[in-house]
Structures are given as C-alpha cells and as structure tokens.
Design a protein around this nucleic acid. Sequence first.
DNA 1: ACGCTAGCTGACCGATCGGTCAGATCCTGT
DNA 2: ACAGGATCTGACCGATCGGTCAGCTAGCGT
Lengths: 205, 205
Amino acid sequence: MTSDASVPTPATARPSASGELRATALDQFASVGFAGTSLQQIADAAGYSKSSVLYHFASKEALLEEVLTPAIDRLEAILERFLATAETVESRRRFVNDFIDFILEFRLELHTFINQSQSLRGIPVIDRAGVLIVRLSDTLCHGEASTEDRIRFGIALGGAAYTLVAGMTFLGEEIAPVDEIRPALLAVVTELLAPVTVRTTPSRK
Amino acid sequence: MTSDASVPTPATARPSASGELRATALDQFASVGFAGTSLQQIADAAGYSKSSVLYHFASKEALLEEVLTPAIDRLEAILERFLATAETVESRRRFVNDFIDFILEFRLELHTFINQSQSLRGIPVIDRAGVLIVRLSDTLCHGEASTEDRIRFGIALGGAAYTLVAGMTFLGEEIAPVDEIRPALLAVVTELLAPVTVRTTPSRK
DNA sequence: ACGCTAGCTGACCGATCGGTCAGATCCTGT
DNA sequence: ACAGGATCTGACCGATCGGTCAGCTAGCGT
C-alpha cells in the first residue's frame, strides 16, 4: 500500500508489516482499550517484537492516530456530502444509509473512539473526531438543542458502536453475517434519526 | 437519593473513607477505564495514599467488585421482578420504567461494565453482570433470536450508557438536569424496547 | 494511665510500562 | 562482489505499575 509502488499487492495475503500491526493494534484498542493495551501485547499478537512496532510507528500514540485516521476521514466525507446538499427527506435517508455503511465498515474504530475519547483528549485525531461528532449532532438537530433529539443521536451512535463490537460477542453467540445485520441496523437507526413515518416534517418550532 | 436511612449522614460532608474511595474509583473507572486507572491516581484524587486504598480494599480488582456490585444487585432485582409476573403491556412498560431509573441512578457503573466487560472477563462481578445481560436480552426477545430485536436491545443498552456518560459531556456542554433527561430517555427507550406499544407522545412540539 | 485496635502512611519489591539505541539480517541496485 | 538502505531485534533505560510490610498515630474501653 504505502511503501511498495511496484510490488504487486495480493489483496488476499497481508504482506505489509505495518498493516498487520495496525490491524492487530486496532483489535486490541477496541477490546482492551488504549490504556489497557501494551506495545508488547500488540507485538506478540502480531508476531513481531516490541522494537519493531516502534520502528514502524513513532510512538504508541502515533500508532493510535494511524489506526483511527481512515475512519475519521471517511466520517468527515459523509458529513460534508450531507451538508453539501439541501436537506430533504431523501437526502436525510441517504445520509443514514451512508452512516450505516460507515458504522459497519469501521465498527472497531468507531467503538475505540466512542468509548475512550474522554480519556484520550489531547490526541489530535481524537479531538478531530470529537468536533466532527458535535457537528454531526448539530446538523441533525438543526442547531436547536432539543434534548430528545440529541439523546436520539447519542443512543444511535453509542448503541451501534456497542452492539456491533461488544454486544454481539456475548448477546448473539456467533456474530450474524453482515447481510442480516445491515437491514436490522438500518431499520433501528432510521427510526432513531429520521422518524419519517411519523413526522416527516423536520421539527421546527 | 442514595439515602442511608438511619445513619446520621450529613449530606454535605462525606465521612466514610472507603465510600470516598469507592466514589472516586468509580469516576475514574468510568472515564479512563479500569486498566487505565492506577491506584495512585485514585488515591491522589481522593486525598489518600496508595497504601490506604489497599488497606480498605484487598486489591484493585476487589475495589472494582465493590464498586459495581450494588448496581448489579439492583439490575438483578429489576429482572426478577419482571420475571415474577406474567408479561403484559403494562408489566413491560413498568419494566422499562424501572430500567430507566436504574440507568439514571447507576449510569457510571453501567458505563463501566458495558464498555469494559470484554477485557475484564474472569472477574466474578463482571461475569455475573454478563449472564444478567444475556438473561435480560433473552427475556425481552422471548427466547426467539430475532436479530432486529436483539439489536434494538443492544442499542438501547449501549446507547443509554454512552449517552448519559460520554455523550453528554461533549454533545451537550452542560449536562441537562435529570428531570429533562428522564422523559426523553423514556420515550426513546420505550420506542426501542416496546415497539408494539403506541409511542407515549407528549407531542409537545 | 494503659494497651489495643483501626486508620493511615512511606519505604520497598518484582514486574511491566513506553521508548532508545546499537547492531544483526536481508534485500536490492550497481 | 559490494555498498547501502530498509527491516527487525535484544539489551537496556527511567518511570510507574499492583502489592507487601513495618511502623506511626489517634481514639476508646478499661
């Protein structure tokens, strides 16, 4: 990906060491937490030495940044796209669809950020994600701070992050396939964020 | 609200050292995580020495157990009460009400458990809570494993835990008072857990 | 006045933390 | 064959981790 321009990169195999380390670190960060994950654990799980991890990434914090950045970029793109067009029932529905795809694709990154942003304040990528979430919330609530609307958004966000990572592992024994989860998740999140069936008009006082 | 009935407890002061330590530890566990919290931090924040913490609690793990146990006991009582009576629309509504009260009263404990149960497996109180959650989920879904119903439950659980602790701190700048949060939370959770029932619309728009 | 105990603390322990550094190994261009 | 950069590693560093222990102090029953 990053380093090898000429080398053919088989999509099936995982030749890149830094990629392997990123993936391993993400698993650990999402399940044990950033503070609870040691560089030694990451190295052992990925089959490298701790020194190798610090060769590829300047520090533990830098590793976190590299791991989370793609997800934040994607979320930012989704928000910008939503803001670029006038809001209609249709555009809001499309936004929710994008959002679901984002959640499903970056569930581990989302879970990591959602559950640890408080304790990781000061790390640039975390702060970036923080203002993004606030913008998202403000956008969906049209600036006016309706407590219930904000709670709807918070529950959809935190609930999805929890359910897809932590909840699935011990609620459903085996994780249901994405094609089964997606429609169910879409239905619930749509209900929370775009209650179109009941009140199609955006709440304006 | 956490009224020690007969003990002469001046509401302003906080006489109990172990109580002070429990409260401080809970704050830290919920915001920085169990692994991310050191005994030193807890001691400093509470104004004691690390040795004092270990005098009152046999170990860091024992401290966690003491901190979480009241919440788990309460949750267990709520479930047993729900199971004790035949299920009706009314009993389910009452259960949701109990559940909301539980979430509001034990938000920090719930958040701590919800977001860290994976990494804390093996600790008795965590495992106890785990089977409780599964029983709750099975009860609400009537055993039949409807993916959407399970997702509804997971989102309500994880979403509430997130919103009331992490979400509120940076979505709404100041935390709204409980009397404002409760009805909103009740509406959203009812919508998620008791979809058959008509939404209790105060419809004040 | 005395001893006893509960509460609390600093000194200390081995283990592990994130991070540095000097090589060892391998791979490629010449 | 050789040079040189990329990759990887073990040894090592100071700091901090959870936990132990002996001792200090204040209050209370006698």
